[in-house]
Simulated scan of single mutants.
Amino acid sequence: MRLIPPASLLAPLALALAGCSPVVERAPAAVEAGAAGPPATPAASAASAIDPTLVAKITEILGDNATGTRWVSVVDGEGAGRVALVYLTGMNWCGTGGCNLLILRQGPTDWEQVGNVSRVSTPVRVLNTATNGLPDIGVTVSGGGGPPAYEAKMAFDGRAYPRFPSDEPLIDAFGRVVITDAAIPPPAA
């Protein structure tokens, strides 16, 4: 059975995606001094607005929790390295340490879930590095009674991204911001 998101979820999603534009972040000046600059990476796009198979897969994953869930997705990469980052917000997906970030990889006919990361705050970045064919992802970790906010690197192990961000901060990594608080649709009125 295919679940179709209520129209009240699709309209804010389309508006949020239309306002998403990736921001290039540069490494700190100390790193830049000796570096030739970040390598080129594919531009992020709001493909979920035009990819019904991605919307259907996200809705299938959300199941009964689709009602009341707000989400924004960004598709990055090309070919076998194409992934969708889906930041979920709402009562079922967020706590004091952040919200869930679904990571899906595009297969030949459908999207496949390769990550469900907990304790993620925005911003979320796609880094200019990859592990096992999929991009490394920089996620902000904060709250939950833990240390001050820091960015952690999420690397694909060949089967999945880790469930929880690393306890090690990510330092001096080039990448692009792809999801911010501004991209998340407001609650339905």
Rank of each mutant, 00 (worst) to 15 (best):
L9H: 13
D181C: 05
A47H: 10
D110Q: 15
P42V: 08
G158Q: 06
S48A: 15
I179M: 02
P38I: 11
P12G: 06
A189K: 13
A149N: 06
T109P: 00
N128K: 03
T122R: 10
P12C: 06
G77H: 09
T129L: 03
E32Y: 02
L134Y: 02
V75H: 01
G95F: 02
T131P: 03
A66I: 15
R159P: 00
P108G: 10
S45K: 11
T69Q: 05
D110E: 15
V141F: 07
P165R: 06
M154F: 04
Y150M: 09
V24G: 14
E112R: 13
Y87L: 15
A84N: 06
D76F: 14
G77T: 12
D172R: 11
T129C: 10
A35Y: 08
T129V: 09
P169Q: 03
A160N: 07
P135F: 08
K57I: 03
E78G: 07
S118F: 15
T140A: 06
S121Q: 14
P52A: 12
R70M: 08
M154G: 02
A182F: 10
V141G: 01
A16K: 02
G138W: 01
N116K: 09
G146W: 00
P38E: 06
G143L: 02
A40G: 13
K153R: 11
A155H: 04
C20F: 15
L13A: 09
G95H: 00
N100W: 06
D76Q: 14
C20Q: 15
L102D: 11
V178Y: 03
P42Y: 02
A18F: 12
A84E: 03
P22K: 04
P28N: 12
A33W: 10
L54W: 07
G90L: 09
Y161H: 07
A183V: 02
L88K: 00
K153W: 02
L127V: 01
A11T: 08
P123R: 04
G133S: 12
G68C: 10
P28T: 14
G146C: 00
K57F: 01
L85Q: 02
T109I: 11
F156M: 02
I61H: 03
N132Y: 01
P147Y: 03
T96N: 07
P169V: 06
P169G: 05
S8D: 15
L17Y: 10
R70L: 08
P6V: 12
T109F: 07
V23R: 13
I61W: 06
S118Q: 15
I50A: 12
A160V: 13
A30P: 03
D110Y: 14
V74E: 06
R82M: 08
A44C: 00
N100M: 13
T41S: 13
I61T: 09
A14T: 05
R2A: 14
D157P: 03
G68E: 08
I61R: 04
T89E: 12
A40K: 12
R176G: 07
V23L: 14
D172K: 04
A84Q: 04
T53H: 09
V124H: 01
V31T: 15
G37P: 01
L170N: 04
V72I: 10
G144R: 01
